Amino acid sequence: MAGPRAVDVGRAGLGAGLGLLLAGLALRSSGLGWLIAPLGASAVLVFAVPNSPLAQPWSVVVGNTLSALVALAVITALPHVDWAVPLAVGLAIGIMLAARALHPPGGAVALLVSLGASGDFAATMGPILAGSCLLVGIGVLWNRAVGRVYPFRQPAQLGPHGTHDPTPEERIGLDPSDLAAILEEYRQSANLGVADLARLVGAAEQAAAARRMEGFTAADIMSRDLVTVGPQAPLAQVADLFRKRGFTSLPVVAEDDRLLGLIFQIDLIRRAREDAFRQHKSLISALARLIDNHRAKPPKAGEIMETGVPQISPETPVGALLPLLADGGAEAVPVVDGPRIVGIVTRTDLVSALAQRLALVQAV
Protein backbone atom coordinates (compact mmCIF):
# COMPACT_ATOMS: atom_id res chain seq x y z
CA MET A 1 0.00 0.00 0.00
CA ALA A 2 1.07 3.56 -0.64
CA GLY A 3 1.98 5.66 2.36
CA PRO A 4 -1.00 7.60 3.72
CA ARG A 5 -1.27 11.35 3.89
CA ALA A 6 -1.29 12.92 7.33
CA VAL A 7 -4.84 14.19 6.79
CA ASP A 8 -6.05 10.66 5.97
CA VAL A 9 -4.45 9.29 9.12
CA GLY A 10 -6.19 11.94 11.19
CA ARG A 11 -9.58 11.55 9.52
CA ALA A 12 -9.55 7.75 9.85
CA GLY A 13 -8.14 7.46 13.36
CA LEU A 14 -10.12 10.25 14.98
CA GLY A 15 -13.29 9.31 13.13
CA ALA A 16 -13.12 5.62 14.09
CA GLY A 17 -12.36 6.40 17.72
CA LEU A 18 -15.12 8.97 18.01
CA GLY A 19 -17.58 6.79 16.10
CA LEU A 20 -17.01 3.76 18.33
CA LEU A 21 -17.19 5.89 21.49
CA LEU A 22 -20.50 7.48 20.53
CA ALA A 23 -21.95 4.17 19.31
CA GLY A 24 -20.90 2.45 22.54
CA LEU A 25 -22.38 5.16 24.74
CA ALA A 26 -25.64 5.03 22.77
CA LEU A 27 -25.81 1.24 23.15
CA ARG A 28 -25.15 1.43 26.87
CA SER A 29 -27.69 4.19 27.47
CA SER A 30 -30.38 2.19 25.66
CA GLY A 31 -29.67 -0.97 27.64
CA LEU A 32 -28.24 -2.91 24.68
CA GLY A 33 -24.88 -3.60 26.25
CA TRP A 34 -21.57 -2.34 24.89
CA LEU A 35 -19.47 -2.63 21.76
CA ILE A 36 -18.59 -5.99 20.23
CA ALA A 37 -15.17 -6.66 18.72
CA PRO A 38 -16.24 -6.95 15.03
CA LEU A 39 -17.50 -3.36 15.12
CA GLY A 40 -13.88 -2.28 15.40
CA ALA A 41 -13.21 -3.88 12.03
CA SER A 42 -16.34 -2.25 10.60
CA ALA A 43 -15.03 1.11 11.82
CA VAL A 44 -11.82 0.57 9.85
CA LEU A 45 -13.81 0.31 6.64
CA VAL A 46 -16.34 3.06 7.35
CA PHE A 47 -13.79 5.67 8.46
CA ALA A 48 -10.59 4.67 6.64
CA VAL A 49 -11.87 3.50 3.23
CA PRO A 50 -15.42 4.91 2.99
CA ASN A 51 -15.46 4.60 -0.81
CA SER A 52 -14.98 0.82 -0.69
CA PRO A 53 -17.97 -1.32 -1.72
CA LEU A 54 -17.32 -3.31 1.47
CA ALA A 55 -17.85 -0.19 3.61
CA GLN A 56 -21.21 0.96 2.25
CA PRO A 57 -24.19 1.05 4.62
CA TRP A 58 -25.92 -1.94 3.01
CA SER A 59 -22.82 -4.07 3.45
CA VAL A 60 -22.19 -2.96 7.04
CA VAL A 61 -25.73 -3.29 8.41
CA VAL A 62 -27.05 -6.18 6.33
CA GLY A 63 -23.73 -8.06 6.30
CA ASN A 64 -23.31 -7.98 10.07
CA THR A 65 -26.99 -8.71 10.75
CA LEU A 66 -27.28 -11.63 8.35
CA SER A 67 -24.07 -13.14 9.71
CA ALA A 68 -25.41 -13.01 13.25
CA LEU A 69 -28.73 -14.54 12.21
CA VAL A 70 -27.00 -17.37 10.34
CA ALA A 71 -24.77 -18.11 13.32
CA LEU A 72 -27.74 -18.17 15.69
CA ALA A 73 -29.60 -20.55 13.38
CA VAL A 74 -26.62 -22.91 13.11
CA ILE A 75 -25.88 -23.17 16.83
CA THR A 76 -29.59 -23.59 17.55
CA ALA A 77 -29.83 -26.46 15.08
CA LEU A 78 -26.45 -27.98 16.01
CA PRO A 79 -25.75 -27.31 19.68
CA HIS A 80 -22.50 -28.63 21.17
CA VAL A 81 -21.08 -29.59 17.75
CA ASP A 82 -17.51 -28.43 17.18
CA TRP A 83 -17.80 -28.08 13.44
CA ALA A 84 -20.87 -25.86 13.79
CA VAL A 85 -18.60 -22.84 14.33
CA PRO A 86 -16.73 -22.98 10.99
CA LEU A 87 -20.00 -23.96 9.31
CA ALA A 88 -21.63 -20.79 10.63
CA VAL A 89 -18.81 -18.62 9.29
CA GLY A 90 -18.86 -20.33 5.89
CA LEU A 91 -22.61 -20.01 5.56
CA ALA A 92 -22.47 -16.37 6.65
CA ILE A 93 -19.99 -15.60 3.91
CA GLY A 94 -22.18 -17.30 1.34
CA ILE A 95 -25.31 -15.48 2.51
CA MET A 96 -23.52 -12.10 2.46
CA LEU A 97 -22.34 -12.72 -1.10
CA ALA A 98 -25.83 -13.78 -2.20
CA ALA A 99 -27.31 -10.64 -0.64
CA ARG A 100 -24.63 -8.43 -2.23
CA ALA A 101 -23.74 -7.35 1.29
CA LEU A 102 -20.21 -8.70 1.67
CA HIS A 103 -18.62 -7.17 4.77
CA PRO A 104 -15.45 -8.86 6.12
CA PRO A 105 -16.28 -8.11 9.79
CA GLY A 106 -19.44 -10.15 9.22
CA GLY A 107 -17.28 -13.29 9.33
CA ALA A 108 -16.04 -12.20 12.75
CA VAL A 109 -19.64 -11.55 13.83
CA ALA A 110 -20.61 -15.10 12.86
CA LEU A 111 -17.59 -16.51 14.68
CA LEU A 112 -18.27 -14.48 17.82
CA VAL A 113 -21.96 -15.39 17.92
CA SER A 114 -21.42 -19.09 17.30
CA LEU A 115 -18.74 -19.26 19.99
CA GLY A 116 -20.43 -17.31 22.72
CA ALA A 117 -24.13 -16.79 22.04
CA SER A 118 -26.30 -17.06 25.13
CA GLY A 119 -29.37 -18.17 23.24
CA ASP A 120 -31.10 -14.88 23.99
CA PHE A 121 -32.06 -13.54 20.57
CA ALA A 122 -32.58 -9.93 21.67
CA ALA A 123 -29.39 -9.81 23.73
CA THR A 124 -27.39 -11.15 20.79
CA MET A 125 -28.92 -9.19 17.93
CA GLY A 126 -29.41 -5.87 19.73
CA PRO A 127 -25.76 -4.78 19.96
CA ILE A 128 -25.01 -6.07 16.45
CA LEU A 129 -27.90 -4.48 14.56
CA ALA A 130 -28.06 -1.26 16.59
CA GLY A 131 -24.27 -0.94 16.74
CA SER A 132 -23.93 -1.35 12.97
CA CYS A 133 -26.65 1.26 12.31
CA LEU A 134 -25.11 3.70 14.79
CA LEU A 135 -21.66 3.28 13.28
CA VAL A 136 -22.99 3.92 9.78
CA GLY A 137 -24.96 6.97 10.89
CA ILE A 138 -21.96 8.48 12.66
CA GLY A 139 -19.82 7.60 9.65
CA VAL A 140 -22.15 9.54 7.34
CA LEU A 141 -21.92 12.65 9.53
CA TRP A 142 -18.17 12.39 10.12
CA ASN A 143 -17.15 11.77 6.52
CA ARG A 144 -19.27 14.63 5.24
CA ALA A 145 -17.92 16.92 7.98
CA VAL A 146 -14.33 16.24 6.83
CA GLY A 147 -15.12 16.67 3.14
CA ARG A 148 -15.66 13.08 2.00
CA VAL A 149 -18.78 11.54 0.48
CA TYR A 150 -20.33 8.60 2.32
CA PRO A 151 -22.28 6.63 1.21
CA PHE A 152 -20.03 6.81 -1.83
CA ARG A 153 -22.42 5.64 -4.52
CA GLN A 154 -25.39 7.96 -4.56
CA PRO A 155 -27.84 7.65 -7.48
CA ALA A 156 -28.85 10.65 -9.56
CA GLN A 157 -26.18 12.96 -8.21
CA LEU A 158 -26.20 16.35 -9.89
CA GLY A 159 -23.14 17.58 -11.74
CA PRO A 160 -21.26 20.85 -11.16
CA HIS A 161 -23.91 22.76 -13.11
CA GLY A 162 -26.87 21.27 -11.25
CA THR A 163 -27.80 18.87 -14.07
CA HIS A 164 -27.64 15.11 -14.47
CA ASP A 165 -25.24 15.35 -17.41
CA PRO A 166 -21.83 13.82 -16.67
CA THR A 167 -18.84 16.14 -16.86
CA PRO A 168 -17.25 16.47 -20.32
CA GLU A 169 -14.30 14.24 -19.47
CA GLU A 170 -16.77 11.51 -18.44
CA ARG A 171 -18.91 11.70 -21.59
CA ILE A 172 -16.24 10.28 -23.88
CA GLY A 173 -15.15 6.89 -22.67
CA LEU A 174 -16.54 3.61 -21.44
CA ASP A 175 -20.18 3.30 -20.49
CA PRO A 176 -20.89 2.40 -16.82
CA SER A 177 -22.21 -0.98 -17.97
CA ASP A 178 -18.89 -1.61 -19.73
CA LEU A 179 -16.99 -0.74 -16.57
CA ALA A 180 -19.23 -3.01 -14.52
CA ALA A 181 -18.57 -5.85 -16.98
CA ILE A 182 -14.81 -5.31 -16.64
CA LEU A 183 -15.00 -5.46 -12.86
CA GLU A 184 -17.09 -8.61 -13.06
CA GLU A 185 -14.75 -10.26 -15.56
CA TYR A 186 -11.71 -9.64 -13.40
CA ARG A 187 -13.54 -10.48 -10.16
CA GLN A 188 -12.93 -7.04 -8.68
CA SER A 189 -16.49 -5.87 -7.98
CA ALA A 190 -16.04 -6.47 -4.23
CA ASN A 191 -12.92 -4.32 -4.10
CA LEU A 192 -13.72 -1.55 -6.56
CA GLY A 193 -16.95 0.10 -7.60
CA VAL A 194 -17.94 1.39 -11.03
CA ALA A 195 -17.57 4.99 -9.81
CA ASP A 196 -14.05 4.25 -8.54
CA LEU A 197 -13.01 2.63 -11.81
CA ALA A 198 -14.49 5.53 -13.81
CA ARG A 199 -12.42 7.99 -11.79
CA LEU A 200 -9.26 5.95 -12.31
CA VAL A 201 -9.86 5.59 -16.05
CA GLY A 202 -10.56 9.31 -16.33
CA ALA A 203 -7.40 10.16 -14.42
CA ALA A 204 -5.37 7.80 -16.62
CA GLU A 205 -6.79 9.32 -19.80
CA GLN A 206 -6.06 12.81 -18.51
CA ALA A 207 -2.49 11.79 -17.68
CA ALA A 208 -2.12 10.29 -21.16
CA ALA A 209 -3.41 13.52 -22.74
CA ALA A 210 -0.94 15.49 -20.65
CA ARG A 211 1.86 13.19 -21.83
CA ARG A 212 0.91 13.87 -25.45
CA MET A 213 1.21 17.59 -24.71
CA GLU A 214 4.83 17.28 -23.61
CA GLY A 215 6.94 20.04 -25.07
CA PHE A 216 4.17 22.64 -24.84
CA THR A 217 4.32 25.10 -21.98
CA ALA A 218 2.06 27.91 -20.85
CA ALA A 219 4.44 30.37 -22.50
CA ASP A 220 3.68 28.76 -25.89
CA ILE A 221 -0.08 29.25 -25.76
CA MET A 222 -0.71 32.18 -23.41
CA SER A 223 -2.01 35.58 -24.45
CA ARG A 224 0.74 38.16 -23.86
CA ASP A 225 -0.75 41.48 -24.99
CA LEU A 226 -2.99 41.79 -21.99
CA VAL A 227 -5.84 44.17 -21.37
CA THR A 228 -5.97 44.84 -17.65
CA VAL A 229 -7.74 47.12 -15.23
CA GLY A 230 -6.73 48.59 -11.91
CA PRO A 231 -8.57 47.91 -8.67
CA GLN A 232 -10.10 51.42 -8.79
CA ALA A 233 -11.56 50.93 -12.28
CA PRO A 234 -15.34 51.50 -12.20
CA LEU A 235 -17.46 48.53 -13.16
CA ALA A 236 -18.83 50.54 -16.07
CA GLN A 237 -15.35 50.42 -17.62
CA VAL A 238 -15.07 46.70 -16.91
CA ALA A 239 -18.45 46.00 -18.54
CA ASP A 240 -17.49 48.11 -21.53
CA LEU A 241 -14.28 46.11 -22.03
CA PHE A 242 -16.21 42.86 -21.81
CA ARG A 243 -18.64 44.11 -24.47
CA LYS A 244 -16.10 45.60 -26.88
CA ARG A 245 -13.35 43.02 -26.59
CA GLY A 246 -15.44 39.88 -26.18
CA PHE A 247 -13.49 38.84 -23.07
CA THR A 248 -14.93 36.69 -20.32
CA SER A 249 -12.25 37.63 -17.78
CA LEU A 250 -9.97 40.56 -17.01
CA PRO A 251 -6.87 40.67 -14.78
CA VAL A 252 -6.89 43.27 -12.05
CA VAL A 253 -3.36 44.58 -11.51
CA ALA A 254 -1.48 47.20 -9.51
CA GLU A 255 0.59 49.94 -11.17
CA ASP A 256 3.69 47.69 -11.24
CA ASP A 257 1.78 44.89 -13.07
CA ARG A 258 1.49 42.95 -9.83
CA LEU A 259 -1.49 40.61 -10.11
CA LEU A 260 -4.25 41.36 -7.61
CA GLY A 261 -7.01 39.13 -8.92
CA LEU A 262 -9.32 38.30 -11.81
CA ILE A 263 -12.77 39.61 -12.58
CA PHE A 264 -15.17 37.49 -14.63
CA GLN A 265 -18.38 38.39 -16.41
CA ILE A 266 -20.28 36.18 -13.98
CA ASP A 267 -18.96 38.33 -11.10
CA LEU A 268 -20.93 41.30 -12.46
CA ILE A 269 -24.10 39.23 -12.64
CA ARG A 270 -23.62 37.85 -9.11
CA ARG A 271 -23.09 41.33 -7.69
CA ALA A 272 -26.16 42.62 -9.54
CA ARG A 273 -28.22 39.71 -8.22
CA GLU A 274 -27.14 40.47 -4.65
CA ASP A 275 -28.03 44.13 -5.13
CA ALA A 276 -31.40 43.20 -6.61
CA PHE A 277 -32.33 41.10 -3.57
CA ARG A 278 -31.06 43.69 -1.14
CA GLN A 279 -32.76 46.66 -2.85
CA HIS A 280 -35.89 44.76 -3.95
CA LYS A 281 -35.28 45.58 -7.60
CA SER A 282 -35.26 43.56 -10.80
CA LEU A 283 -31.99 42.03 -11.97
CA ILE A 284 -31.93 44.24 -15.07
CA SER A 285 -32.34 47.46 -13.12
CA ALA A 286 -29.77 46.34 -10.54
CA LEU A 287 -27.29 45.54 -13.31
CA ALA A 288 -27.92 48.89 -15.01
CA ARG A 289 -27.31 50.70 -11.73
CA LEU A 290 -24.18 48.62 -11.08
CA ILE A 291 -22.49 49.81 -14.28
CA ASP A 292 -23.81 53.38 -14.10
CA ASN A 293 -20.70 55.54 -14.20
CA HIS A 294 -22.63 58.64 -13.11
CA ARG A 295 -23.27 57.42 -9.59
CA ALA A 296 -21.70 59.36 -6.72
CA LYS A 297 -19.65 56.32 -5.67
CA PRO A 298 -19.64 53.74 -8.48
CA PRO A 299 -18.45 50.27 -7.41
CA LYS A 300 -14.88 49.36 -8.35
CA ALA A 301 -13.25 46.31 -9.89
CA GLY A 302 -11.37 45.61 -6.68
CA GLU A 303 -14.66 45.11 -4.84
CA ILE A 304 -15.80 42.11 -6.86
CA MET A 305 -12.57 40.59 -8.23
CA GLU A 306 -11.66 37.02 -7.32
CA THR A 307 -8.37 36.74 -5.46
CA GLY A 308 -8.11 33.01 -4.88
CA VAL A 309 -7.58 32.01 -8.51
CA PRO A 310 -4.85 29.48 -9.34
CA GLN A 311 -1.66 30.84 -10.89
CA ILE A 312 1.00 29.23 -13.06
CA SER A 313 4.45 30.11 -14.35
CA PRO A 314 5.47 30.39 -18.02
CA GLU A 315 7.29 27.04 -17.70
CA THR A 316 4.18 25.15 -16.54
CA PRO A 317 3.48 22.24 -18.95
CA VAL A 318 0.24 22.56 -20.86
CA GLY A 319 -0.76 19.12 -19.61
CA ALA A 320 -0.94 20.51 -16.08
CA LEU A 321 -3.59 22.97 -17.24
CA LEU A 322 -6.08 20.23 -18.10
CA PRO A 323 -7.40 19.77 -14.54
CA LEU A 324 -7.29 23.52 -13.87
CA LEU A 325 -9.39 24.44 -16.89
CA ALA A 326 -11.68 21.40 -16.79
CA ASP A 327 -15.43 21.81 -16.51
CA GLY A 328 -16.36 23.34 -13.19
CA GLY A 329 -12.83 24.65 -12.66
CA ALA A 330 -11.18 27.92 -13.60
CA GLU A 331 -12.22 29.75 -16.77
CA ALA A 332 -8.82 31.40 -17.13
CA VAL A 333 -5.47 31.00 -15.41
CA PRO A 334 -3.04 33.93 -15.05
CA VAL A 335 0.62 33.32 -15.88
CA VAL A 336 2.94 35.09 -13.46
CA ASP A 337 6.64 35.72 -13.22
CA GLY A 338 7.10 36.36 -9.53
CA PRO A 339 4.30 38.77 -8.52
CA ARG A 340 3.94 40.21 -12.05
CA ILE A 341 1.43 38.92 -14.55
CA VAL A 342 2.98 38.15 -17.94
CA GLY A 343 0.12 36.34 -19.66
CA ILE A 344 -3.15 34.50 -19.33
CA VAL A 345 -4.35 31.11 -20.57
CA THR A 346 -8.07 30.60 -21.24
CA ARG A 347 -10.04 27.50 -22.11
CA THR A 348 -10.05 28.65 -25.71
CA ASP A 349 -6.25 28.75 -25.71
CA LEU A 350 -6.11 25.23 -24.29
CA VAL A 351 -8.60 23.82 -26.82
CA SER A 352 -6.63 25.39 -29.65
CA ALA A 353 -3.38 23.87 -28.36
CA LEU A 354 -4.97 20.43 -28.03
CA ALA A 355 -6.34 20.65 -31.58
CA GLN A 356 -2.92 21.62 -32.94
CA ARG A 357 -1.16 18.77 -31.16
CA LEU A 358 -3.83 16.29 -32.30
CA ALA A 359 -3.35 17.45 -35.89
CA LEU A 360 0.42 16.93 -35.56
CA VAL A 361 -0.03 13.43 -34.13
CA GLN A 362 -2.43 12.43 -36.91
CA ALA A 363 -0.06 13.82 -39.54
CA VAL A 364 2.75 11.66 -38.20
Rank of each mutant, 00 (worst) to 15 (best):
L226M: 00
P57Q: 04
D327R: 06
P176R: 10
G139S: 05
F47D: 01
A156C: 11
I93Y: 13
D178R: 10
P155I: 05
V227G: 08
A233S: 14
H280E: 14
R357E: 04
S29Y: 07
V9T: 05
A190V: 04
P57K: 01
R28D: 09
V89C: 07
V146P: 05
P168V: 13
V136T: 00
R258C: 10
G202S: 11
G173D: 02
G343E: 10
G10V: 08
A92D: 10
A198L: 10
A288Y: 04
V74F: 12
A37D: 01
G107K: 05
L78Y: 13
L18A: 13
Q311V: 15
L20F: 01
V345L: 09
P251C: 01
A218I: 03
P53M: 13
L325T: 15
V318L: 12
T346Q: 06
T228L: 06
D327C: 03
L22Q: 07
A301N: 15
A43R: 00
G338T: 07
A326W: 03
A254R: 15
V140F: 00
A43W: 00
S42L: 00
Q265G: 01
E205M: 13
A55T: 07
A73T: 10
V70G: 00
L111P: 09
V229N: 04
L290H: 08
K297N: 12
L39K: 01
P166V: 09
R271W: 10
R224D: 00
L22P: 06
P79T: 07
Q157A: 09
N143M: 14
L158W: 01
I182C: 09
I221L: 09
A55H: 08
V136E: 00
A77I: 03
A98T: 13
F152L: 01
V351C: 04
A353R: 13
G126S: 12
